[in-house]
Amino acid sequence: MLDDLNSRKGGEDLSGESWVPGAERGSDREVPLSTKAQAAVHRWLDGESPEDDAVLADTKHVEMWRRVNAETSRRRQMMTPAYVETRIMQSLPAGVPTVEANTATNRGVEVKLSPGVAIAAAIGFLALGAILGALFAAL
């Protein structure tokens, strides 16, 4: 079966609970509740209040987040290596992508047969054969 590429399930089905490495520290439940100082830092990091407000509330963490922000800003400038585009284009399947036709016409129909149904069908065919045989004998 093909993946549902329009699915948004991926955004929701991997909660912290199903995550193994480091889950005890990263899960939703284990994170302590925000303090006022943390809330001030969040507001600053979300661009909702000036840095000065955050500094007044929590100087040491503001300094830490400045450094983290410098690193994340550096990562924001990263670009795809030039060869990747060529690699992708060379890996594309030959031909033009087409609208998938009715699956019944191009995939064949899968028949599932349980043992009970198979035995019943066999008995039915035997009975039918016997009846037809008797009819031909009578003629």
Binding site: R25, E30, V31, V41, L45, M64, V68
Partner: peptide, 13 residues
């Protein structure tokens, strides 16, 4: 952020 802060603060805060 709070989880990261917890992991990084000992060294960087």
């Amino acid at each position: 952020r709070e989880a990261l802060q917890g992991l990084l603060e000992e060294k960087y805060a």
